[in-house]
Simulated scan of single mutants.
Amino acid sequence: MPLTPVPPAPRVVLIAALAAALTGCAPAERLLDDVVRDVTGYPLSFDEVDRDDPFGGTEAQDYGEGFAVPEAAGLGDYPAGRVQLAYDITGDLLEAVYLDEEAVFGGGDGRFRQLLDRRSREWYDEHAGHEDPLMDSRNLLFHLTPGTAEPIGDVVKVDGGMRAEVAEDENGWRYLAVHTEYTIVHPVARPGERVSVRLVTSHYGQVSFYGDGEGGWEVLPAWWRAVGPVHCLDDQVTFTPAYADEMPEGERPRGLIEDDPYDLDAGRGLEGDCGAIRGT
């Protein structure tokens, strides 16, 4: 008998970059712009992303454009075809979360919900909008705060992979676990403006597949992520990009600017923390 779905670990890591211009005051921004113009001959620009080459000069330029699904082999009692189906479902879930513009920028969840089985969908619906943001099942999704970002181009770069293993939970139920670790890069701009940034997401977690006794799966996604540069607003289930012309909102980032947002290992131990990162 499969497990009843339980809340995933929805706690997210919000990593904020220090603002390039330490001011949120328009007159001060104009003064800083005048100083930069006098010294360099060019006006100050917060347009960080080249519209014609959004990933140029970054590690992301060599990344792929989707979640590649590996070719499966049999694992224990699970034949290759069964494992392949789990891989395919996992890839579809990740695409629904990170590559669906309606989900990322519009807050939609329809595609994601369709990929859940009946019981996990019931759990998701029950916990969506939970009064405790950490228990809100919408943490599984990657939603940007409405009105804060629009995509630059139609390409999202992805690097990483998934792997399957046979696992056993605390109740002794065996299941197939598909572990997922990825770096995902979204180039975005403030709507209607030239101010822009690359949002870099480090994704960690797994999708658990329990047999439903009828040849199907019960699908339980559980993951967390580090995202930057964003404002550290721990009472929200959405991410608010931190553009270079803004002061940090919410919790201030701690520590030196030494973490590389493209390094999956750098974000692995930061769950629940808010720290400063290098430019994306």
Rank of each mutant, 00 (worst) to 15 (best):
S137I: 03
S137M: 03
R138K: 11
L140M: 07
L140V: 04
L140C: 08
L141A: 06
F142S: 02
F142Q: 12
F142L: 07
T145W: 09
P146W: 00
G147Q: 06
T148M: 14
E150I: 04
P151V: 07
P151H: 01
P151M: 04
V155Y: 02
V155S: 03
V155R: 02
K157I: 04
V158R: 02
D159P: 09
D159T: 15
D159K: 11
G161R: 03
M162S: 11
A164F: 13
E168V: 15
D169R: 12
D169A: 06
Y175I: 15
V178P: 15
E181W: 01
Y182C: 06
H186I: 07
V188N: 01
V188D: 00
V188M: 03
V188Y: 04
A189F: 03
R190K: 07
R190T: 04
P191N: 05
P191L: 01
S196G: 11
L199Q: 01
L199P: 03
S202N: 11
S202L: 10
H203D: 07
Y204K: 05
Y204N: 10
G205E: 05
V207E: 10
V207I: 12
V207G: 12
S208T: 14
S208A: 15
Y210Q: 12
Y210G: 12
D212T: 08
D212Y: 09
D212P: 09
